[in-house]
């Protein structure tokens, strides 16, 4: 059977997200049309989202679609953790080491970046960010955190 994979997946994602919102809204007070509760409007939207997802999904069956194309797996593996790592360490390690780590991780998203250059670039970014954001703009983040005795 031929399936437009991109659209099938897309429809499925919308159905799942819509259903998740619908279930959560149903747990809230719905109220009446006169006095709508916190769940009324979101429940309506969530139902619409599920329906739209359904339409997209069923239309994708028996249709040949374009290929999804190259996926940036390596990019996702290294880019997405960068802000998370910064978030996890900015209080404990402090601003300077934390931004160094986040930048270093992001560097590995490209095959073209060598280790030495990555270290150098991350150090430069950390110093520059420290000068601009902490010294220049005066953001109140400690440069070195409590984990390493700052």
């Amino acid at each position: 059977m031929v399936v437009d994979r991109a659209n099938a997946l897309c429809g499925a994602i919308f159905i799942v997200l819509g259903a998740a919102f619908a279930v959560q809204s149903y747990g809230l007070e719905l109220g009446t049309a006169f006095r709508m509760g916190p769940g009324y409007f979101p429940l309506g939207l969530a139902v619409v989202l599920v329906l739209l997802g359904g339409i997209i999904f069923f239309r994708s069956l028996r249709v040949k679609g374009e290929a999804i194309g190259a996926v940036a797996w390596r990019g996702m593996l290294f880019i997405l953790p960068a802000p998370v790592v910064f978030g996890l360490t900015v209080r404990g390690l402090g601003f300077l080491p934390s931004i160094f780590a986040a930048c270093l991780i992001a560097c590995f998203a490209s095959r073209r970046m060598g280790l030495a250059w990555a270290l150098l670039l991350s150090a430069a970014v950390a110093l520059f960010a420290w000068a601009v954001f902490l010294k220049g703009l005066g953001l109140p983040f400690p440069p070195i955190g409590t984990w390493i005795g700052g």
Binding site: I79, A82, P83, F86, G87, V90, I99, A102, C103, L104, A106, C107, A109, S110, R112, M113, W117, A118, L121, S122, V125, A126, A129, F133, L139, F141
Partner: peptide, 18 residues
């Protein structure tokens, strides 16, 4: 580009956190 995007990611992280 491989030099630009780590820098951009770092500044995005700082920006959002700030």
């Amino acid at each position: 580009y491989y030099v630009l995007f780590p820098v951009i990611m770092a500044f995005c992280a700082i920006g959002v956190y700030s």
